Measured scan of single mutants.
Amino acid sequence: MAEQVALSRTQVCGILREELFQGDAFHQSDTHIFIIMGASGDLAKKKIYPTIWWLFRDGLLPENTFIVGYARSRLTVADIRKQSEPFFKATPEEKLKLEDFFARNSYVAGQYDDAASYQRLNSHMNALHLGSQANRLFYLALPPTVYEAVTKNIHESCMSQIGWNRIIVEKPFGRDLQSSDRLSNHISSLFREDQIYRIDHYLGKEMVQNLMVLRFANRIFGPIWNRDNIACVILTFKEPFGTEGRGGYFDEFGIIRDVMQNHLLQMLCLVAMEKPASTNSDDVRDEKVKVLKCISEVQANNVVLGQYVGNPDGEGEATKGYLDDPTVPRGSTTATFAAVVLYVENERWDGVPFILRCGKALNERKAEVRLQFHDVAGDIFHQQCKRNELVIRVQPNEAVYTKMMTKKPGMFFNPEESELDLTYGNRYKNVKLPDAYERLILDVFCGSQMHFVRSDELREAWRIFTPLLHQIELEKPKPIPYIYGSRGPTEADELMKRVGFQYEGTYKWVNP
């Protein structure tokens, strides 16, 4: 592979701008107003304001973009700056750019259920340069409990009458099928589907988006991507930290609602779906819905739930269990780990287990898709061969690698495990991989909904998990304890083995 010439960040961002501006969906010269509902909250200060700053800094926003914060707290732009700027990672050389960014910011205080507050917000936006005809993007960085009041008031008082209007809704989209349907029906009564952007930030990850290209742009994968060759698929999300004093919020939802029903299920769809007619948003989402419709409700015998306990040999936070978090209700049975087996009941995947695993306070930070292939028929190497695996590593250190057998150097035919490896950090030294939120917010500006969740996708996802969630809430089974920093409950490994996964433990990928 030829040595790549190092590029400056300015040059890299210039390439990104060229890609972005050559499309006809990006209205570079139009006025846009980006409204952050819930501007005083954690999500706004840690993710949304920093993301908008990065896009502005790199010249990736339309030229005439204004940012308006809205929340109940009586704040000023200076207050917003004070709480969000520490997350910007701005350099001293960017000081003038930073001043320009905050000059485009404003803030309006108001209630979430008060019509007069929204009329005041609308008047404020109209007073901005060309504000009355601007395109408006409303980001709901809010708890779902206020979605209905907020969307109703936005629709009645704050819509642009000339430009387009788009609304970005953060997960969780309800707690179960019934609450999700209620919320979807409410929002759909106010906005068209092409105006609604239900954001799952995992769909903005580079390697998640790469799944489609790997599958449908490489001839070698087509013939082997089926039940005849693939023994099982494992989708993993692991965090090495616990709730760390923020367990009160987590306890309301648990690990299945927080990660599995959305992030992991979306990745499953991209692995299992048929080739779409095109890369058009609805063509892709149509195929994802077909996959979900082929999955039956989760069966309790295919589920393992766990909850982390303190590690007596650990240090600091590792010595504390979930129930030691003062914000967690006493005696909570909320799971911090889950392993679930699903089956896609169609011709391509009949009988292939899709194993979804996620948890907190585990032994490493990792998100990946792992396809394990069947054993080689007619073994001539005296059971020395391990199964081939194709691994798409989402985070950290984005990579695609194939675990395969090669001859060990020497005189004899002794096979050993090795890999074919594409590590993004080595291959793409001159490429700026956008943060997931950067990519998705740019998608909203461009009107691309491919990486957002459609209402029928959402409904099918909740259909699969709601009976299990209701059973857990009714019966309150005690989750299996696992030690902070471990791989999780051993019962999860036993479940995976029972459905056909072979864990060798003899080879570990190392970032080159």
Rank of each mutant, 00 (worst) to 15 (best):
6 A>S: 14
6 A>G: 12
8 S>G: 11
8 S>M: 05
10 T>N: 12
10 T>S: 15
11 Q>K: 10
13 C>S: 15
14 G>D: 15
14 G>F: 14
14 G>M: 14
17 R>L: 09
17 R>Y: 15
18 E>T: 06
20 L>W: 05
20 L>V: 07
21 F>I: 15
22 Q>Y: 08
22 Q>E: 12
22 Q>G: 05
23 G>T: 12
24 D>L: 05
24 D>M: 09
25 A>W: 12
27 H>S: 08
28 Q>W: 10
30 D>S: 10
31 T>M: 13
32 H>C: 07
33 I>F: 11
33 I>S: 09
34 F>R: 01
34 F>I: 06
35 I>V: 08
36 I>E: 01
37 M>L: 09
38 G>C: 01
38 G>Y: 01
38 G>I: 02
38 G>H: 02
38 G>F: 02
40 S>T: 09
41 G>S: 03
41 G>L: 00
42 D>C: 04
42 D>I: 03
43 L>M: 03
43 L>G: 01
44 A>V: 04
44 A>N: 01
46 K>H: 04
47 K>H: 09
47 K>I: 00
48 I>C: 04
49 Y>M: 14
49 Y>Q: 05
50 P>V: 07
52 I>S: 04
52 I>M: 07
52 I>Y: 10
52 I>F: 07
54 W>S: 05
55 L>P: 03
55 L>H: 09
55 L>D: 05
57 R>A: 08
57 R>Q: 08
58 D>L: 09
59 G>S: 08
60 L>R: 08
60 L>S: 04
60 L>F: 12
61 L>P: 02
62 P>A: 10
62 P>H: 10
62 P>N: 10
63 E>G: 10
64 N>E: 07
64 N>W: 14
66 F>T: 05
67 I>A: 04
68 V>P: 00
68 V>Y: 07
69 G>S: 07
69 G>H: 09
69 G>D: 03
72 R>H: 00
72 R>G: 03
73 S>L: 00
75 L>H: 12
76 T>G: 11
76 T>C: 05
76 T>A: 05
77 V>L: 15
78 A>T: 14
80 I>Y: 10
82 K>Y: 05
82 K>R: 10
84 S>L: 12
85 E>T: 15
86 P>K: 06
88 F>K: 05
88 F>V: 05
88 F>M: 12
88 F>H: 04
89 K>G: 12
90 A>E: 06
91 T>C: 14
91 T>Q: 13
91 T>M: 12
92 P>S: 13
93 E>A: 13
93 E>W: 06
94 E>Q: 12
95 K>T: 11
95 K>Y: 11
96 L>E: 07
100 D>P: 04
100 D>Q: 14
101 F>I: 02
102 F>R: 05
106 S>E: 11
106 S>I: 14
107 Y>A: 07
108 V>D: 03
108 V>Y: 13
109 A>T: 09
109 A>N: 15
110 G>I: 00
111 Q>G: 12
111 Q>A: 12
112 Y>D: 02
112 Y>Q: 06
112 Y>V: 04
114 D>F: 08
115 A>N: 05
116 A>R: 11
117 S>F: 04
118 Y>T: 11
118 Y>C: 11
118 Y>N: 05
119 Q>K: 15
120 R>C: 12
121 L>C: 11
121 L>N: 00
122 N>T: 14
123 S>H: 15
124 H>C: 07
125 M>N: 07
125 M>H: 03
125 M>P: 02
126 N>T: 11
126 N>K: 11
128 L>M: 11
131 G>F: 11
132 S>W: 13
132 S>C: 14
132 S>A: 15
134 A>K: 13
135 N>F: 07
136 R>L: 06
136 R>I: 07
136 R>C: 07
138 F>V: 09
138 F>W: 12
138 F>Y: 06
138 F>S: 02
138 F>P: 02
139 Y>S: 11
140 L>D: 01
142 L>D: 00
142 L>C: 06
143 P>H: 05
143 P>M: 04
144 P>W: 02
145 T>M: 10
145 T>H: 09
146 V>M: 04
148 E>Q: 15
148 E>I: 11
148 E>V: 13
148 E>W: 09
150 V>Y: 04
151 T>W: 13
151 T>Y: 06
152 K>V: 11
153 N>S: 12
153 N>V: 05
154 I>A: 13
155 H>G: 05
156 E>C: 11
156 E>A: 11
156 E>P: 07
156 E>H: 13
156 E>W: 11
157 S>R: 13
157 S>E: 14
158 C>H: 08
158 C>R: 04
160 S>R: 08
162 I>G: 06
162 I>N: 10
163 G>V: 06
163 G>M: 12
164 W>G: 06
164 W>Y: 15
164 W>H: 10
166 R>H: 10
169 V>T: 07
170 E>T: 00
171 K>N: 00
171 K>E: 01
172 P>H: 00
172 P>G: 01
173 F>G: 04
173 F>E: 00
174 G>M: 05
174 G>N: 10
175 R>C: 09
177 L>W: 07
177 L>Q: 14
177 L>I: 11
179 S>H: 04
181 D>S: 09
182 R>T: 12
182 R>F: 13
183 L>A: 03
185 N>Y: 10
188 S>K: 06
189 S>I: 09
190 L>Q: 13
190 L>M: 08
191 F>R: 02
191 F>D: 00
193 E>R: 02
193 E>D: 02
193 E>T: 02
194 D>E: 07
195 Q>T: 10
196 I>D: 01
196 I>K: 02
198 R>H: 05
198 R>F: 04
200 D>M: 00
200 D>Y: 02
202 Y>C: 05
203 L>C: 04
205 K>Q: 03
209 Q>T: 14
210 N>Q: 03
212 M>Y: 09
212 M>N: 01
213 V>N: 05
213 V>M: 13
215 R>P: 05
215 R>S: 00
216 F>M: 02
217 A>G: 15
217 A>Q: 10
220 I>C: 14
221 F>P: 03
221 F>G: 02
221 F>W: 15
222 G>W: 14
222 G>N: 13
224 I>Q: 14
224 I>Y: 03
224 I>E: 06
224 I>S: 10
224 I>A: 05
225 W>I: 09
226 N>W: 05
226 N>Q: 12
226 N>A: 12
228 D>I: 07
230 I>Y: 04
230 I>K: 01
231 A>W: 04
234 I>N: 12
237 F>K: 03
239 E>K: 00
239 E>A: 08
240 P>D: 14
243 T>C: 15
243 T>D: 04
244 E>I: 12
245 G>L: 09
246 R>C: 00
247 G>H: 06
247 G>E: 09
247 G>N: 07
247 G>Q: 07
248 G>D: 04
248 G>V: 05
249 Y>V: 00
250 F>Y: 12
251 D>Y: 00
252 E>W: 07
254 G>I: 01
254 G>H: 01
257 R>L: 04
